[in-house]
Design a protein around this nucleic acid. Structure first.
Length: 450
RNA sequence: GGUGGGAUGGCCGAGCGGUUAGGUCGCGGACUGCAAAUCCGCUUACAGCGGUUCAACUCCGCUUCCCACCUCCA
C-alpha cells in the first residue's frame, strides 16, 4: 500500500511502525456548528484510508479529536447564554449522527479537548522548561519558532527568507516573533466563564496544543499517520510537529496526508455565496447519505473536488446500476474474469487511494457480470465494499408494495396473459402515476419505487 | 511577493511518452408486443503558443485563467 507523504512529497509504502497496527490521528471538527460537506470530504477520505489499511490486513487505531474550546465555541456559547459544554454537545451529537449517515467507520477514540486540559498544561510546562516557550506580559504562553530548528519542514517554507507581515496583524507585540504561536491563552473578559487555572494564570489552551497532547497520549510519542485538510498543513500541523518534537526530542509522525478542498460549482463554499451546504441540507433536498458518500469518495483525495447537484443525480443512477447487478450476483467461487477486476481494484486503492480507478474496476465488473447474465461474484462485490461502503447487499432495501399497486399488477398479469397490450400499457401508466416502475422480463413483472 | 496544486469530451472525473479510463447524458443498433433493464457501437477530449522526441494529453519553456496556503478555515 503506497501513499503520498506530504512531509517528503513522495509516494511511500505504508507499513506499521510497530506490530501490525497503523496508528492514525485525524484532526476532527470544531463543534461550534453543523459540519459542512467540505468537512465531510476530509472525514470520508480518512474513512477510506482506514478501510484500505484494514483491506490490506493491517489493524488500525484511529484517534479523532473534538475541538470543544476555542474562539468560536466560546463566542457561540456566550452569545447563546449557555454553558460551553451544553453548547458543544449539540454539535458533537450532530457530528456523530452525520458520520453514521455517511457510513463512516467510528474512530477508536474521540477525545475532547476540554477533557484533556491537564495533559495540555503538562506539555506546555515541558516546553517552557526546555526554554522553547515563554510567558508574555499578559499571561499567555507562546512557542518560540526560532528555537525549533526544523520549523517549516512540513510546509516546506524557509522562514529565513520569508517576508513577514504580509497578512498577519502587526500589532501583536506580546510575541517575540511574528511566527510565534500561542500554547496557552490568558483569560480575557470575552471568555466569560470559560477558563482553567494553570501555572501561568487562568486561561485556556491554544488551538494546536490539543492535537499534540492528545495524539501522543493515545498513540505514543511517535506514530504512523496524521491526516487532515490541506488547509491544516500550515500552520496547524507544522505547529503540532514543533510542539511534540521540541518536547520529546523524537520524531512525531512518520507520514502526513492531506486532502484537497471541495468546491461548489467551481467556487469556494461560503455562506455569503449561498453555496454552503451541511449534510442536513442535502438530506432535506432528498439525497441520501449513501449518494453523498459516493460523490465524496469518487474523486482522488489530493485533487480539488467540484461538488454539484448533477453529480449527486449521477451517483443515484450509478448506484442503482450497481444494485441491480449485485442483486443478480450469487455466492461461490468467483470466476477468473471477476478476480481480475478485483486485482485491478486492489492495485488502484493501494496506489495512494486512487478511488476513481477503483470505481472503474467496479463498473467493469458490473458490465462483465451483466454480459455473463450474472455469476458467482457476490464475494468480489463484498470485498470491494469493505473499502467503498456504498453497496447494498440483500433485499432489505426493498419497500413493500402497497395493496392497491399489487391489485393493478395482478390485473396487468391477467391482461398480459390474454395479450391485451392496450390494457397492459394503461395499467403500467397507472402504476407509474403511483410512483412505481414496472419492468417485464421472462420471469414476469417486477416493480420498484421510482 | 513566496510556496504548492490545477486547466481533460454536454457534465463529473482518472491516467500515461506510443495501446478503450470509468460514471452520467445524448445518438444508433440488438433484445422486447411496446417499454424498462441489459448488451454492442457512436458522438474523432486533453487551455494557448513554442520546444525536446521516431512518437506528447503525458516531458521542458512561456502565456492565459483557476484554486489553496503564507501564522488558529477539512
Amino acid at each position: 500500500m503506497q501513499v503520498f507523504n506530504s512531509l517528503t512529497r513522495r509516494n511511500e509504502e505504508l507499513k506499521p511502525l510497530e506490530a501490525n497496527e497503523i496508528r492514525l490521528y485525524t484532526c476532527g471538527p470544531t463543534v461550534y456548528n453543523y459540519a459542512h460537506i467540505g468537512n465531510f470530504r476530509a472525514y470520508a477520505f480518512e474513512d477510506v484510508l482506514r478501510r484500505v489499511v484494514q483491506f490490506n490486513g493491517m489493524k488500525i487505531r484511529q484517534v479523532m479529536n473534538l475541538t470543544d474550546v476555542d474562539d468560536k465555541t466560546i463566542r457561540g456559547a456566550n452569545a447563546a447564554g449557555v454553558k460551553l459544554t451544553d453548547y458543544t454537545k449539540t454539535y458533537k451529537d450532530a457530528f456523530f449522527a452525520d458520520l453514521k449517515k455517511l457510513n463512516i467507520q467510528s474512530a477508536e477514540v474521540y477525545p475532547a479537548a476540554t477533557d484533556h486540559i491537564p495533559e495540555m498544561i503538562a506539555l506546555v510546562g515541558k516546553l517552557v522548561e526546555k526554554g522553547v516557550a515563554y510567558k508574555s506580559e499578559d499571561g499567555s504562553v507562546y512557542f518560540n519558532v526560532h528555537k525549533f530548528p526544523g520549523y517549516g519542514k512540513l510546509a516546506h517554507i524557509d522562514f529565513d527568507h520569508q517576508q513577514t507581515g504580509a497578512r498577519c496583524a502587526a500589532d501583536e507585540y506580546d510575541k517575540e516573533n511574528v511566527g510565534d504561536f500561542a500554547l496557552w491563552k490568558a483569560w480575557e473578559e470575552s471568555d466569560g466563564p470559560v477558563g482553567w487555572d494553570s501555572p501561568w494564570g487562568k486561561g485556556r489552551p491554544g488551538w494546536h496544543i490539543e492535537c499534540s497532547a492528545m495524539s501522543m497520549k493515545y498513540l505514543g510519542e511517535t506514530f504512523d499517520l496524521h491526516t487532515g485538510g490541506i488547509d491544516n498543513l500550515f500552520p496547524h500541523h507544522e505547529n503540532e510537529i514543533a510542539q511534540a518534537e521540541a518536547a520529546t526530542g523524537k520524531p512525531f509522525v512518520k507520514t502526513w496526508m492531506h486532502c484537497a478542498h471541495l468546491r461548489v460549482n467551481g467556487e469556494k463554499m461560503s455562506k455569503s455565496a449561498g453555496n454552503f451546504f451541511t449534510l442536513r441540507d442535502l438530506i432535506e433536498k432528498g439525497y441520501t447519505g449513501r449518494e453523498i458518500r459516493y460523490v465524496l469518495i469518487n474523486a482522488h483525495y489530493r485533487q480539488g473536488l467540484n461538488f454539484a447537484f448533477s453529480a449527486l443525480d449521477d451517483a443515484r443512477k450509478s448506484l442503482a446500476r450497481i444494485d441491480a447487478c449485485v442483486e443478480k450476483a450469487t455466492a461461490g467461487e468467483a470466476p477468473e474474469w471477476a478476480k481480475a477486476r478485483l486485482d485491478e481494484f486492489t492495485a488502484a486503492v493501494n496506489d495512494d487511494l486512487n478511488m476513481p480507478k477503483a470505481f472503474a474496476a467496479l463498473f467493469e465488473l458490473v458490465r462483465d457480470t451483466n454480459s455473463h447474465g450474472g455469476g458467482p461474484v457476490l464475494d468480489v462485490f463484498k470485498r470491494m465494499d469493505e473499502v467503498l461502503g456504498v453497496i447494498f447487499f440483500g433485499k432489505a432495501e426493498k419497500t413493500d408494495v402497497p395493496a392497491e399497486v399489487q391489485a393493478l399488477l395482478d390485473k396487468r398479469a391477467d391482461a398480459r396473459k390474454a395479450k391485451d397490450w392496450a390494457l397492459s400499457d394503461k395499467l403500467r401508466d397507472e402504476i407509474a402515476a403511483m410512483g412505481w416502475l414496472v419492468k417485464d422480463s421472462r420471469e414476469g413483472q417486477s416493480v420498484s419505487k421510482k
